[in-house]
Design a protein around this nucleic acid. Structure first.
Length: 188
DNA sequence: CGACTTTGACCAGCGC
DNA sequence: GCGCTGGTCAAAGTCG
């Protein structure tokens, strides 16, 4: 998930995948939204705004957040200011897999059916000690070939893949850093 | 045996 | 005030 270097992973210094890993074989990025300090930006190429107009759960979170004074509901419904929560990043990817390996280790802690989506939403926490990053994953209700992933928080540790990479200084990083191409404009 | 997943229950915010 | 909803917890079950 090369794009995660810039959007999924809140920490842009991290890279996820070893050279021989080509996530694009398994899915393609269709849209991504990035939410930061109450402002989310989308890929401004031609395709539609992924989700907020389509009533998708992930983007509903965004519109909900922005319409609720940029606050985010946290643990047990406690509302926090975005600045307390940290980064929030929403992706829409075309993938057969619901759970994409972004290089971090996630632990599932909940599953919930949500009103706006026929598909259940899955909740994951980063299983690294002391890291409080969470992510939600759900299938696009409109097009089940798409998966909506929402990351909340910033990892305070390296990706295991990054550690792996650091051990191989001879590997050419360009081989995969250059994969950070703009999201596909063809969301079909 | 430890780590992980599943799943129902619980809690708090929001709208009516 | 009540009901709905989303998010989290925690016990039980599963797997390597």
């Amino acid at each position: 998930m090369d794009f995660s270097r810039e959007s999924s992973n809140p920490n842009p210094n991290y890279t996820f995948f070893p050279e021989n890993f080509d996530p694009m074989v398994q899915f393609e990025l269709s849209d991504y939204l990035m939410v930061d300090d109450g402002v989310f930006k989308e890929d401004t190429s031609s395709h539609n705004m992924a989700s907020s107009e389509k009533g998708l759960g992930g983007a509903n979170e965004i519109s909900g957040a922005t319409s609720k004074n940029s606050n985010i509901k946290c643990k047990s419904g406690v509302t926090k200011n975005k600045s307390e929560v940290g980064h929030r990043v929403v992706f829409r990817t075309k993938s057969e897999m619901e759970v994409m390996d972004d290089g971090y280790k996630w632990r599932k802690y909940g599953k919930k059916s949500v009103k706006n989506s026929p598909n259940p939403r899955n909740y994951y926490k980063c299983s690294s000690g002391g890291c409080d990053v969470k992510k939600r994953i759900e299938r696009d209700g409109d097009d089940k070939s798409f998966v909506i992933t929402t990351y909340v928080g910033v990892h305070n540790h390296e990706s295991p893949y990054m550690a792996y990479y650091n051990q191989m200084p001879l590997m050419a990083p360009n081989a995969w850093t250059l994969k950070a191409s703009p999201p596909s404009s063809s969301s079909t």
